[in-house]
Amino acid sequence: MNQKAQVVAAVYDKDIDAGRVVGRSLKSLREAVGYTQLQMAERLGIGQAAISKIEARGDVQISSLKKYVEALGASLRIEAAFNADSAVSTRLREELQLDEHSSRQLVLPIFSSDELTLEASKDLILSIHPQYSEKILAGKKTVELRRRFPLSTARGTKVYIYSTSPVRAIVGSAEISEIIKLPIKNIWARYSKCAFIKKNDFEEYFKGLSEGFALELMNAKTFETPINLEVLRERFNFTPPQSFIYAKQEMRRALMDEQTNISN
């Protein structure tokens, strides 16, 4: 069995406990990189016996696991994988507005030591009615309300504002300063004035829910030239989301370039 196969076998071996699975995987990875136990011990500043113990048992803290993996020249990622056909996977795809793909699993991150990778993929595109997008870009409306939104979204995340019909264009950007999840009545009491929404419209929007989300916004900027839907479709095969989507890498790069043509 080659080294790659040994790593895969260690990860998926169901005949032993989870700790030993981790230990065997670490050993296989170390051997694949070409380090001896003594070399790993020197890189980590610990004794060889400690390396042997880790690889024999594997029941280490995440912080220690992170150091071990980084000593190999890699970064640690821990993910949760949901079966693609499960009810949980279907609901999460809908709530997070994730693209469908051929994978048999929905994989979501739990932990990553690669901060740049995490931050680089999180720009959002929000669909917002023109009467509200105009007020956001004018600095008047500082809160956007949503029925569902991932609380894991990082503060400072860039959001690009797609102004819906009749404008049908990405008209500017803002940043998320805070995401608040509250009972519906508390959202109205706290944000009704800065959200610029009528009570009837508010109640209709949140109908059937007990809780909702308030996205506090900052640093709103207007594009000097809006990017209309026809251009977005032609360049990026873009379909306006009902609520929001994560910007794909090619589109995110282009939108970042477009910000050289925005007014403060």
Rank of each mutant, 00 (worst) to 15 (best):
H129Y: 11
K122A: 04
L65K: 03
L108N: 03
A84F: 13
V60S: 01
Y132P: 02
P130N: 03
E94G: 09
L98P: 01
S127L: 03
A80K: 11
D123V: 06
S102W: 14
A120G: 01
R93D: 09
A80D: 04
S64V: 08
I78V: 10
Q131V: 07
L106K: 00
I62M: 08
E100D: 15
L65S: 06
L106C: 05
A74N: 08
I110K: 04
E115M: 11
V60G: 00
I125F: 05
Q131E: 14
A81T: 02
I78R: 02
S121M: 12
E100G: 10
L116D: 12
R93F: 09
K53H: 02
V107C: 06
S121I: 13
S113T: 09
S75N: 09
A74E: 09
A74K: 14
A56I: 01
S86R: 08
A80H: 08
L72R: 02
D123L: 04
L106N: 01
A84Q: 11
G73V: 05
A50Y: 08
V60I: 04
D85G: 12
I54G: 00
L118Q: 08
L126W: 10
N83M: 09
A56S: 10
Q97D: 15
L98I: 08
A80Q: 10
I125A: 07
Y132T: 05
K67V: 04
S102M: 14
L92V: 04
S52K: 03
R77H: 02
K122E: 14
A80M: 10
Y68R: 00
G58R: 00
L116P: 04
Q131N: 13
A50L: 11
V88A: 15
L72N: 04
I78Y: 01
P130Q: 05
E119K: 07
V60F: 01
P130D: 06
L124C: 09
T117C: 13
F82D: 08
V107Q: 11
E119W: 07
Y68S: 05
